[in-house]
Amino acid sequence: MNIVVPVKLVPDLVEELTVDASGSALDTAWLRLIINEFDDHAIEQAILLKEQSGGQVVVVSPNAEGVEDMLFTASAKGADQLIKLNGDFEDGVNNHGLARALATLLRDLQPDLILTGVQAHNDLDGSLGPLLAQYLEMPYVGYVSGVTADSGKVVARKEYPGGLIAEMEVTLPAVLGIQAAEQPPRYVAISKVRQAMKTAAIDEQEAATLDPSGGPTVSRMYQPEATEQATMISGSEDEIAARIIDIFKESGVL
């Protein structure tokens, strides 16, 4: 099975996020980018499928700071082909624009299955997977946390709240939005990534002019105001612990 995994980098939420001078976008100057965690799960799911039923895994990503490291890491995990999509991505690109650009490339790759993260935390115009599916005229199922390959079909385990699972049979070629791989994304040692940097090659492809139509325009971006800002407890560990115990007592759980 020929599996393609489109992935993207997103701001690391561990870092402080600030709004730029325009007041309508994130300040990208200091943003640290990391792989969208659901894309990381999509890579893992693709490699698991390959290990179970053969085939090859192609990982493709739009160019951004850190994309090579991310692609080489995917290679060290077991991806067979790496593609970097060059284009006008410096100021970011919405999902509609990215999906159109990727659709052209993906048509040529003729995948049986496209796995991508079900969403990214900075999405504001839907998610990449179902847009790709529509542009490529493939079916889509999202919130998937397990995939089994069958001939010409896959069975996707779709998650509903509370742990309920719906098994969906999907005719290939298809796009699945991955919420979680069947097992946590594997860890690869830095030495293996270094090795991949020497042995694996990154194909570079050029995206056509981006067409972001279909997404909204943001006029104001800001940090949320707290509805109930927490009363902060400070002091030594023992003092904080003592205060928390008082709160437990006041709440009747101790």
Binding site: N95, Q119, D123, L124, D125, P130, L131, G142, Y160, G214
Partner: peptide, 22 residues
Amino acid sequence: TTIGMDVASGLSAQLGLPLVSS
């Protein structure tokens, strides 16, 4: 949700209508 997000983006692309998420 698990339901709405499975169809909203597809509808946007199919009908050529703008989509705002979250």
